[in-house]
Amino acid sequence: MKTNVGGIDRVIRIVVGLALIIAAATGKVGWWGWLGVIPLATGLFSYCLLYTLFGINTCPTGKK
Protein backbone atom coordinates (compact mmCIF):
# COMPACT_ATOMS: atom_id res chain seq x y z
CA MET A 1 0.00 0.00 0.00
CA LYS A 2 1.50 3.31 -1.06
CA THR A 3 1.29 6.27 1.27
CA ASN A 4 -0.65 9.26 -0.02
CA VAL A 5 -0.94 11.45 3.09
CA GLY A 6 2.12 13.39 4.15
CA GLY A 7 3.49 16.45 5.92
CA ILE A 8 1.10 18.99 7.36
CA ASP A 9 -1.91 17.01 6.13
CA ARG A 10 -0.86 14.08 8.31
CA VAL A 11 -0.29 16.22 11.42
CA ILE A 12 -3.65 17.96 11.02
CA ARG A 13 -5.47 14.63 10.68
CA ILE A 14 -3.84 13.25 13.84
CA VAL A 15 -4.52 16.39 15.90
CA VAL A 16 -8.14 16.72 14.74
CA GLY A 17 -8.78 13.00 15.26
CA LEU A 18 -7.40 13.07 18.80
CA ALA A 19 -9.32 16.25 19.62
CA LEU A 20 -12.61 14.72 18.48
CA ILE A 21 -12.02 11.49 20.38
CA ILE A 22 -11.11 13.36 23.57
CA ALA A 23 -14.15 15.62 23.21
CA ALA A 24 -16.40 12.58 22.77
CA ALA A 25 -14.83 10.74 25.71
CA THR A 26 -15.32 13.72 28.02
CA GLY A 27 -18.89 14.33 26.89
CA LYS A 28 -18.23 17.71 25.25
CA VAL A 29 -19.71 16.51 21.95
CA GLY A 30 -22.13 13.77 20.98
CA TRP A 31 -21.49 10.33 19.55
CA TRP A 32 -20.23 11.82 16.29
CA GLY A 33 -17.00 12.78 18.05
CA TRP A 34 -15.99 9.13 17.88
CA LEU A 35 -15.72 9.58 14.12
CA GLY A 36 -12.37 11.15 14.98
CA VAL A 37 -11.03 7.61 14.68
CA ILE A 38 -11.14 8.01 10.90
CA PRO A 39 -8.81 11.03 10.54
CA LEU A 40 -6.60 9.62 13.30
CA ALA A 41 -6.20 6.30 11.47
CA THR A 42 -5.58 7.92 8.09
CA GLY A 43 -2.96 10.17 9.67
CA LEU A 44 -1.21 7.34 11.49
CA PHE A 45 -1.17 5.02 8.47
CA SER A 46 -0.47 7.86 5.97
CA TYR A 47 -3.11 6.42 3.67
CA CYS A 48 -6.53 7.76 2.69
CA LEU A 49 -8.88 5.76 0.48
CA LEU A 50 -10.67 8.89 -0.74
CA TYR A 51 -7.34 10.39 -1.84
CA THR A 52 -6.75 7.25 -3.91
CA LEU A 53 -10.20 7.48 -5.51
CA PHE A 54 -9.69 11.16 -6.43
CA GLY A 55 -6.03 10.80 -7.44
CA ILE A 56 -4.71 13.08 -4.68
CA ASN A 57 -1.28 12.57 -3.13
CA THR A 58 0.16 14.95 -0.50
CA CYS A 59 3.08 12.66 0.33
CA PRO A 60 6.20 13.89 -1.49
CA THR A 61 7.83 10.45 -1.75
CA GLY A 62 4.79 8.17 -2.11
CA LYS A 63 6.60 5.33 -0.32
CA LYS A 64 5.38 1.77 -0.25
Rank of each mutant, 00 (worst) to 15 (best):
P60M: 11
L44E: 11
T61H: 15
V16C: 05
L20W: 01
S46C: 12
S46W: 04
P60L: 10
L53W: 15
G6K: 02
V29A: 03
A25D: 02
G36L: 02
G30S: 04
G17Y: 00
N57Q: 14
G17Q: 03
K28F: 11
W34I: 05
G62A: 12
V5A: 01
I12K: 06
A23S: 11
A19I: 07
G33M: 03
I21K: 03
G62E: 10
L18R: 05
V37N: 07
T26Y: 09
A41H: 02
G27K: 10
L18N: 07
G62L: 08
G7P: 06
N4S: 11
R13W: 07
L53C: 14
G55F: 09
I38H: 02
D9K: 03
L49E: 13
I14V: 13
G55Y: 09
I22P: 02
V29D: 02
V37L: 12
C59W: 08
L53Q: 13
K63L: 14
L44G: 11
V11D: 14
L40C: 07
K2C: 13
C48N: 02
L18C: 12
L35T: 06
I14K: 03
V29W: 03
G6F: 02
C48L: 03
G30K: 05
G27I: 07
G36R: 01
I56C: 14
T58L: 11
P39E: 02
L35M: 11
G33N: 03
A24I: 09
V15S: 11
L50P: 12
V5M: 00
V16P: 00
